[in-house]
Structure formats: structure tokens, C-alpha cells
Simulated scan of single mutants.
Amino acid sequence: MGNVSIVKLEHFEDKFLNELENFDLPKEQIQFSALPKDILNTTDGQYRIVITNNGQAVGFFLLHTTDKVKNYSSNPNALLLTALTVDHKYQGKGFAKKGMLALPHFVKEFFPSYNEIVLVVNEKNFHAQALYKKVGFNDTGERKIGPIGKQILMSLSIE
């Protein structure tokens, strides 16, 4: 039996800072996301969420409750997910998938008035699209033009 992996979503704390600042991504992935160290300074309505494996930061993303959400959903109770990243050395181990599967429960616990998560994913970012579909996000059919091309708008209902 190998080590049991306990993957959780946690609100950012300073104890994760060093790990997050040392995240690394290959060039072909950086174009689609952002390194945590570049987006750790947030404003009101932006929440830094850390994907942990046995307490170690392995992934990171932002949830937004700001007016920016209105660009992606007419639902006043929607959250916007951006900048999902898994440190390169932890990729391919299912951490992003486990983190995203934990998201509905996490939202119910910490953002109980929200019932939808929306995100945009670049149409060339096939890995991310496959991940989001696997964990229940649906392609809304809407497209946005992003900084590096067309983006697919996806949505996940929180029951």
C-alpha cells in the first residue's frame, strides 16, 4: 500500500507562500494560466484557494465574487474560477481533478449563497477542457475572445 493521498481545498494562508512562490510551469502551460506568485495580491471579492495534498500546496486558483463575474454569467449567485494551476512536479497525479471534484462541497461550505461556478478555458487548452468536463463542467456554447484567442465558457451548477 502506498501513502494515502488526502487532497483538500484550503483558503490561502501564509504557510503556503513559499511553496506557491516556487511553482513552476512549462512554457506551453504558462500561456494559458498564471503562476501563483504573479497573482497572490488580490482585491476584495477575490479568494485565493490552495489545492493541498497531505498539507502540501500542489495547486492554486482564484474564485471571484466581483463584478467581473457578470461578464461570464447573468446569475447573480455565480462564482468565477480563474488561474487554476498545478505545480509542474505534481502534474499527472490527479490533484487538479480531485481539487475540482471537491469544489462543489467547498463552495457550499464557504460560499453558501452561490450555486454556480463559471470559467473560461482557451480552445487550444485541451488538457484543461478535458479536466473540466470530467468533473462536471458543461460547455455553455458561449465563446469569449481572450488575450490569446477564443475561449470556451463553461459552467458547473452547485446543487
Rank of each mutant, 00 (worst) to 15 (best):
K68A: 02
A102R: 12
I148F: 14
Q91Y: 09
H88N: 14
A96L: 10
F95V: 00
V120P: 00
Y132M: 07
K89P: 01
K150T: 13
D38E: 14
G149W: 14
F126V: 03
Q129G: 00
D44S: 13
N77D: 11
V69R: 09
E159A: 07
L156S: 04
L101C: 03
E13K: 15
G146S: 13
K124V: 02
L35P: 11
P26G: 01
A96W: 09
K144P: 02
P76G: 09
L63Y: 07
Q29T: 07
L131C: 07
F16P: 04
N115T: 10
G136A: 13
Q46S: 07
D14S: 15
N3M: 12
K37A: 10
K93G: 00
L20P: 12
G92N: 01
S155D: 03
Y47M: 05
P26K: 09
V4R: 08
I158A: 10
N122E: 09
V7T: 15
L156E: 04
I39V: 13
P147W: 11
L131H: 06
I152M: 08
E123D: 14
E123F: 08
L81H: 08
H64Y: 14
L35E: 11
D87F: 08
L103M: 08
D87Y: 10
L84T: 10
D44F: 14
K150E: 14
G141P: 10
L40Y: 14
D67V: 02
N115P: 02
K89N: 13
N122D: 14
I148N: 10
S155H: 09
N115W: 06
K133M: 03
N125F: 15
Y72S: 01
I117K: 04
H88I: 00
L119H: 11
D87T: 03
L20R: 10
L9P: 02
I51M: 02
K27W: 03
M1N: 05
E19C: 00
I6W: 04
I39M: 11
I145E: 13
K98H: 00
E13W: 06
N22Q: 15
L20N: 10
L101V: 01
R143Q: 08
N138R: 11
L131M: 12
F23I: 03
H105T: 08
G94Y: 07
